[in-house]
Design a binder for these strands. Structure first.
Length: 283
DNA sequence: ACACGACCCTGTTCGC
DNA sequence: TGCGAACAGGGTCGTG
């Protein structure tokens, strides 16, 4: 579900409720998500204060006053929702407890922060804050696409000599952090590059042209509160609305929106995942 | 090095 | 209406 813009939107929604606030109690309702939850997680987290709430790629990082950092990944269907007596609480949520509410943080001001994940592809871990960046799952991840390190020189040199398709390269988290299936499709449509094209057969100048499109698509999506297709919600329960701005993703059969193109978006499957592109203007 | 499929899960939608 | 298949925004692992 959540790619970088969705995770960033969730982070921003959680900031007013979590940053600087103490976690009074933590309910851990099952032993594992995708992997086992950290040992004695409830005890290690409860009583600490959230000093900062950061994001790296699709991970949320909560730096705790204990010197540990809580890593959270939302997987495909993960949500984090605020409820209880707090500004920004998700008031549409009538049910006290859903069977997929796996972890609940009770904050000192009465807010509840609930991690809900039906498919349980999500994950959490606790590590020393000093070593958070070196965590197994974070260590190999490429630069933040909205940061200075991700630029034309970086992307062209990193992709030089690769034999993969450009879609697979953009989804490869070692190349650039945070892109997923939706935004990779959108970037390639804007850039006019076919998702099936081999990286080695794209001129360096065209590879470089992807950089501003990556930045634009992600920034616009963040500004729109992410994309809500099925289960994604912002932390306050609101829907994101970038899905209305999709030009390729999920538009199978629709006319291409590029002025004067006249092509039709088609769906193909690349290594088990849907790609959407216009065969006329994406080459 | 890389491409691909299987796998991890549940829920929803689609075709017959 | 019912039922199975296909599909879904994530990533890892093993195989060829």
């Amino acid at each position: 579900m959540p790619e970088l813009p969705e995770v960033e939107t969730v982070r921003c929604g959680l900031l007013p409720v979590m940053e600087g606030a103490r976690i009074l109690r933590t309910d851990v309702n099952r032993p594992n998500l995708r992997w086992p939850l950290p040992e004695r997680m409830a005890e290690r987290v409860s009583g600490t204060r959230v000093m900062a709430l950061r994001r790296r790629s699709k991970y949320l990082l909560a730096d705790l006053s204990s010197g540990e950092t809580l890593l959270v990944h939302l997987g495909m269907s993960g949500r984090i929702l605020i409820s209880g007596d707090a500004p920004g609480a998700f008031r549409n949520r009538h049910a006290m407890h859903d069977r997929h509410d796996h972890v609940v943080f009770h904050m000192e001001d009465g807010a509840r922060v609930t991690f809900n994940d039906p498919r349980r592809f999500g994950a959490m871990d606790l590590v020393a804050t000093d070593a958070a960046e070196q965590h197994q799952r974070l260590a190999g991840i490429g630069p933040e696409p909205l940061g200075n390190e991700f630029d034309e020189v970086y992307l062209t040199s990193t992709l030089k000599g690769r034999r993969t398709t450009i879609k697979a390269a953009l989804l490869d988290q070692r190349v650039v952090a945070g892109l997923g299936n939706i935004y990779a499709c959108e970037v390639l449509h804007r850039a006019g590059v076919s998702p099936t094209r081999r990286v080695s057969r794209i001129a360096a100048r065209r590879i470089a042209s992807l950089v501003p499109h990556v930045r634009d698509v992600l920034s616009e999506a963040i500004a729109a509160g992410g994309s809500s297709l099925r289960d994604y919600r912002q932390a306050d329960g609101e829907l994101g609305y970038f899905q209305h701005a999709f030009r390729a993703y999920g538009r199978d059969g629709d006319p291409c929106v590029k002025p004067g193109c006249g092509g039709r978006i088609m769906r193909t499957v690349q290594s088990g995942r849907s790609s959407f592109h216009c065969p006329k203007c994406q080459r």
